[in-house]
Design a protein around this nucleic acid. Sequence first.
DNA 1: GTAGGGTTAG
Length: 721
Amino acid sequence: MLRCLPKVPDFIIPFQSLALPAFHISSVSHCLHKNIELNSPCPTDLSDYIVLLQQCTSRKSLWDLRRTHLHMHKSGFPHLSLGNKLIQSYLKCGSIEDASNLFDEMPQRHVVTWNSMISAYVCHGLSGEAIGLFERMCLENVFADEFTFSIVFKAFSDMGLVHGGRKAHGLLVVLGLEVSDAFVGSGLVDMYAKFGRLRDARLVCDRVVEKDVVLLTALIVGCTQHGENGEALEVFRGMIVKEIKANDFTFASILIACGVLGDRRSGMQIHGLMVKSGYDYVVACRTSLVTMYSKCGSIDDSLKVFERCPGANLVTWTALITGLVQNGREESSLLMFKQMVGKSLSPNAFTLSSVLRACSVLAMYEQGQQIHCIVLKTGLHGERYVGAALIDMYGKCGSIGMARLVFDSLDKCGVVLINSMINSYAQSGYGKGAVELFDHMQKSGIEPNDATFLSVLSACSNAGLVEEGCRIFSSLQRNSKLDPSTDHYACVVDLLGRAGRLEEAENLIKQVEEPDAVLWRTLLSACRIHGKVEMARRVMTRVLELDQGNEGAHVLLSNIFASAGEWSEVSNMKITMKDMKLKKSPGMSWIKVDREVHTFTAGDPSHPRATEINEELERLREKIETLGYVPDVRFVLQDLNEEDKKRSLYYHSEKIAIAFGLLSYKHNNTCIRIFKNLRVCGDCHNWIKYVSKVSEREIIARDAKRFHHFTDGMCSCGDHW
DNA sequence: GTAGGGTTAG
């Protein structure tokens, strides 16, 4: 039937390219063949068609529009302004395809028609096509006007084409058009700001005579996106002074600046202004408020804002969940996440990386796995941030195998993902894995950054890979692009110190221009391992010069004296610490059994199953002593007799937690995962090795610094921690 | 005979 239609005049869209569904085509043909009229009275002149097109667009009926189009071509109306009107009607009805086909067929086009098409492409996120059309327009010697430029600058900024954008600016000047137009100005300011050329953005902004809210908001956004938050606030204040009223876009952006600056005072003032202006019901503004308060550390205010936000969308939920994680409310963040999913909102990459972070911090392995399932279901496993968060989560839960599995499943491995993986190896004490990956990345031509060096050096120090660590550190010193930071030095000091090369470690600290308390404390910790009392006294004075109230250093020194049996020094230290109001945090271990967390302190008799636990501890003691376990009383830091020292060791919190774990999972051969707030003591470490052998169980202990994986009498740290 | 600016992260 289509083949029977008359030849289409040139300026009208070819009939075949209308791509109508089959029944539409037959009805159109039917209309045409039977001469069924479109409307009554039948359009006869230009104004009739204009009215008809207006009717189609107001009803947004693409079908009627196409019918009218056909009628026009049948009646032979090749009028330029009508063609343009038709293109705009197609765009208003949402069919960029019809508009574009018609545009290509037109023998003549007005600049307005070019503008409409370019603008439609930009609005549909097709900035590449918009730029193509702009270039075609220039080649065809059509003079672009202010309107054209106000749109193409956005297209260039969307595509990140700095050079092209600057060329377009040049052309604007050559054509003698004015930057001072607020529309052109805001397009340019936005483009330069997004390219990070804030100076250019400000220069353009200064030239605009009649500054309006959109122009200044574009500048504010540019400032916030490039870390110039103070400047953003200045622009905002200037705006208020000039009595240019801020709108929802302005408020949503400026609140972010207050959050990043941690300027709660300004944030609250702006919140007040926003309420007065009536924009506090705009969801984007509320979302920014949630972020602002959470970044200022007032997460309870974020919660209040959120509670009164009935239209909360995915971004609002994500802002709150992320805020909760950043404010140490990981458990609440997971509850909120559950509520969000219950409302049938599907999480995005931002939401998922935040909740995965919550699982990492809490070392919640099962929940982490559940979220991994959601990641797979939502198809977001390829997202960089999600991948990094997954590797980090598995690493922090001690599942190095799963971390590697996720790592290997990712297509593109950038430096951030490699860092996450190396860091996971470091925390679990797989130094070799970390060094291998580090060497491999360099062979594949990926440049390590400062975080990579930090992770791989800490991996070496955790695994006692002294020579490897020194080799990597000297390669960092030779690296022309990176400078070793005090953190890098601290890793190497730790590495040398733990290996007993204390003088070398001390000399290394002396090479640092401004050594901090952390560096000296690291050396102090090495003195503790190697019982170097005299050196410890000297190092302690350095620590105190830089950080008087360093609680950790006081505890360390006190433990050094205790190990050396200098009990009078120990009691002196206790008095000093009491005077300085420094408290030693009590050692604590916990284990999760059936969704419940059980916490234990040393010698804790309060658990309902305390008797059973003691019996289990006794059974374990008998079994492991036959294998050769001897309690190491050097780790008892109290002045007791030998027998009491031995007894005090039996009831260390990590031992109680493991005994409870073995009792709870008696009939279930799962791995026992325990957590400790301080570092595992040497005797407990040895004890757990024996227990893993006699119980034939895998035991994972996460202490304040790292993971220990115990299997068959061995630990992944190779006794280096 | 048409338009420019916003919110979430490791």
